[in-house]
């Protein structure tokens, strides 16, 4: 319940005026720098994966086997670099360039696993390992079900 009789604040600025002031004083993201970093780092991760796919195909794997193996390797390095405390430093600069590749997904699972270890394996790691990745999984699975249904109906 709002108290209508209260002494109004001493400041004279209205919420609308203040919203304009906040916009004026809040620094803008360093967009160009961020874009370049994201492009270079995201591109490098993908280029490395492509080199691995090509090399694995050269070793006699089928295209599907090669891409699955390369994905697993990128996940492994994402997890490893998270453990060494390097991956968050990389994403700080590269943004989506480090988040969108599958190594970023590995980071989003390994980081809470490390974080909540001290609260126990069940109540900590087990319960909270998907705090970051959970929404991605939930809505990813829902979307894939929708896409699968469309595919089924259109190709019947």
């Amino acid at each position: 319940m709002e108290n209508k009789d209260w002494r109004s604040p001493a400041i004279g600025v209205t919420p609308q005026e203040y919203a304009d002031l906040v916009t004026k004083e809040t620094p803008k993201p360093t967009l160009v720098k961020n874009l370049i970093w994201a492009f270079v780092v995201g591109g490098l991760i993908c280029a490395c994966a492509q080199i691995m796919i090509n090399a694995l195909k050269g070793l006699g794997l089928t295209a599907k086997e090669a891409s699955n193996t390369a994905t697993a390797i990128v996940i492994f390095f994402g997890a490893l670099l998270t453990g060494f405390g390097v991956y968050d430093e990389l994403v700080k600069r590269a943004g989506a360039g480090g988040i969108v590749p599958v190594s970023g997904f590995a980071n989003s699972i390994v980081a809470p696993a490390l974080e909540f270890k001290r609260e126990g394996f069940v109540t900590g790691v087990g319960a909270r390992i998907f705090t970051v990745a959970g929404p991605v999984l939930v809505f990813g699975i829902i979307t894939s079900i929708g896409a699968g249904l469309c595919y089924f109906l259109l190709h019947r």
Partner: peptide, 12 residues
């Protein structure tokens, strides 16, 4: 976020 989670902090 968990401390090792990678994300980009806002300038503010």
């Amino acid at each position: 976020m968990p401390t090792e989670h990678g994300n980009q902090r806002m300038m503010s």
